[in-house]
């Protein structure tokens, strides 16, 4: 246990130092997460929001919460892993007495920590421009929201791990990941609140893992009425389903892995 804590501390510290070197690019990435804010602009003037019974205030709280959730659930594992596997950089990691996926996980967490000031800055600009759009969530909502963001990130990381493991067998794993981004984009609530969906479409979306990656934490943060127990239950169920698959694929994949030039 103490060893695990020490490894975690060292991994996070080194990855954080590494990410700080790239803060300019991370700022650009943070900026690329403005999609929910753009969608907020369109929704504010759209007839669809009125039809769904969403007030302008609810809309802005929802989309700004979605913006925050999106910032801290970004996963880019497949891009680095593909390159590491292809160029054989994975080999030295395999020799170390540590499952290499922990290293990638630590890199993601460090990158999120690097993002915090940029996200805070963007929120501050928003608060200056449109003071009524922002509302501080209550302590309970904030706590549940942060917890849900963590779980949503874990789910997204696991889903991408499953796809990433296909890199061992196919060169098209990244293309598959790009395809998965499409249902994520349209069903997660990133571009339209789930409440505006027609009922059958909404139940369909809720049967997929995507709304729990964004809409659920965002609704919690925005203080909208949402069944927290059901949401966390779904997150736990999807994580419980994907974790063993990811683990099995990793074991089978590493056995196939033949490094560079083998």
């Amino acid at each position: 246990m103490r060893r695990a804590l020490r490894i975690a501390r060292v991994l996070l510290a080194t990855q954080y130092a590494y990410m700080l070197e790239y803060r300019a690019e991370i700022a650009l990435w943070a900026l690329s997460g403005v999609l929910p804010l753009i969608m907020l602009g369109v929704w504010q003037g759209a007839g669809g929001a009125v039809a769904a019974g969403l007030s302008p205030q609810q809309l802005s709280h929802y989309f700004i919460a979605a913006f925050v959730v999106r910032q801290f659930t970004v996963v880019w594992l497949i891009h680095v892993f593909e390159e590491d596997a292809l160029q054989g950089k994975l080999s030295p990691y395999l020799l170390q007495p540590l499952q290499p996926l922990w290293r990638y996980l630590a890199a993601h967490i460090a990158e999120q920590a690097t993002r915090i000031p940029f996200v805070a800055l963007m929120l501050a600009v928003l608060a200056l421009l449109q003071p009524t759009d922002l509302a501080l969530p209550s302590a309970g909502a904030l706590l549940l929201g942060l917890l849900a963001i963590g779980a949503a990130f874990a789910l997204r990381f696991l889903l991408q791990t499953v796809v990433t493991m296909l890199c061992f067998w196919s060169e098209r794993a990244a293309a598959l990941d790009r395809l998965l981004l499409i249902p994520y984009l349209f069903l997660s609530g990133l571009v339209a609140p789930l409440d505006t969906f027609p009922a059958p479409m909404k139940s369909f979306a809720l049967a997929t893992p995507f709304p729990y990656m964004l809409s659920f934490p965002a609704q919690l943060l925005a203080g909208m009425p949402v069944n927290a127990a059901a949401g966390f239950g779904a997150l736990a169920a999807w994580i419980a389903l994907l974790a063993p698959i990811a683990w099995l694929l990793w074991r089978a994949g590493v056995r196939r892995y033949g490094a560079m030039g083998a």
Binding site: G47, G48, A192
Partner: peptide
């Protein structure tokens, strides 16, 4: 598949934005 998926999603969201109104 990506083009068809993106187009279908965009049409879906556009339909949601219009709701029952006829102008955006």
């Amino acid at each position: 598949l990506a083009v068809v998926g993106n187009l279908a999603g965009s049409l879906f969201v556009l339909a949601l934005l219009y709701g029952r109104s006829s102008r955006l």
